[in-house]
Design a protein around this nucleic acid. Structure first.
Lengths: 227, 227
DNA sequence: CTCACTAAATGAATGACGTTCATTTAGATT
DNA sequence: AATCTAAATGAACGTCATTCATTTAGTGAG
């Protein structure tokens, strides 16, 4: 669970900083290789042996730098978090910035579903890119007038929607096909058959846009309501 | 992936319906045992061997009734879907019904996180309770005036939020502790420190209520806007 | 009543996988 | 040149899901 590559020297710096003698591995190398592996062959291929092979190293060597596979996932997660676009919070109005951030966030992690439990359940401690992302978002909310007591709740609410939407992107087209149960669920069957969205987006985008617009509008109203 | 216990006899019913000669197992037994196992010992304990042991049967026997562990998870998922309370759609106004349904839905699956990928990614085909749940919800939306073209998107948007919120319920209390990175993320650190919600709920409930109220209000407004 | 049929259960085996640990290696320090 | 130390090795373990040839036990046909 510990991600810091080395503890901060407490008193006098005896031993020189930097990587040890003949090290082949480090967090950077592991992260890069894991990311490449996942990008090329998917999460099924992200095994400790496969990762070790990609690094020309024995599987057990990884455990000198990482305490578990969860740690590897956390490294990858943090790296990806740096790809979430928070730039709109710098110069765009709050509503638009939230929309752009949320879409970028969803797009990044819809391609990395297995990381969602990692983001959602593991402390951000020592995940620098993740913390940086949250800071930019928080700053945007504060400057839009959100009280600091409520910012985190608003961000968490949006994030929850984003994670769920990331799953939805990966749902098969026939996920709502009722099969032999069509007759016991007439309303649902009909609604599925008639599903249509104004703009010609795919189903996942239609639901995402509808929900995002609704939540952003609702949050804006809630903010305005409390003066 | 096939969940039907036997194919529907196509032409003349030669063989009598019902369970074969000396069968010990069936979908019902497997589902019940799996549910009990999970309830008592968590998802870590839900292994094919453990399940078989609970049923006094060899692990391989399970594969006569289920084609993979995913199938077992789908059985459990469908059973749990029957616990989601949709009764409010029968007699309460839409806004209140959605709120009660959403909370019930979140509460059921926040105790069964490993099932979320199953619900979110697997077709509902042959999952009767799941289809029934969707039908009740769809009916409620239609009677509230939602056009059948948009009902599914609205439900999917709410579901996405619900799944994400189910994760949030299980997040550790210190998930946002920035650790050594506090100084590089001053806004975020401050917002986390000052996080407070009016009603004395826990953090997950505060974010859930904020997001749910926002989305429900936003959806209501969107519905009204399109005449 | 008996035989043949069939679905279900068995038990041994397989191949991934994450992880541990005693041992060795190789560069830096004294 | 001797020593110290972090990193790498390779063998081993235990846990899984899954497979397959074989056996078991009811059922219906004759």
């Amino acid at each position: 669970m510990i991600l810091s590559e080395r503890a901060v020297p407490v008193k006098p710096v005896r031993r020189r900083a930097g990587r040890p003698p003949h090290a082949l591995l480090g967090h950077a190398q592991i992260t890069k290789a894991a990311l490449a592996l996942v990008t090329r062959h998917g999460y099924k291929a992200l095994t400790m042996s496969g990762l070790a092979k990609a690094l020309n190293v024995a599987p057990s060597a990884l455990y000198n730098h990482v305490s578990s596979k969860q740690d590897v996932l956390l490294l990858v997660e943090d790296a990806l978090m740096g790809r979430v676009d928070v730039s709109a919070f710098a110069d765009k109005p709050w509503e638009e910035a939230v929309r752009l951030w949320a879409r970028s966030y969803r797009d990044v992690f819809s391609a990395h579903l297995p990381l969602i439990p990692v983001i959602a359940l593991l402390p951000v401690t020592n995940a620098p890119q993740t913390v940086k992302m949250y800071d930019a978002v928080t700053d945007g909310f504060l400057r839009a007038g959100w009280p600091k007591e409520r910012v985190v709740d608003a961000v968490v609410a949006l994030e929850s929607f984003i994670y769920g939407s990331a799953y939805d992107v990966n749902a098969p087209a026939d996920i709502f096909a009722p099969g032999e149960l069509a007759d016991v669920a007439p309303h649902f069957t009909s609604a599925v058959a008639h599903r249509r969205n104004p703009s010609g987006h795919n189903d996942a985008d239609a639901a995402f846009n509808l929900g995002l617009d609704a939540m952003v509008a609702g949050l804006e109203a809630a903010l305005a309501a409390q003066h």
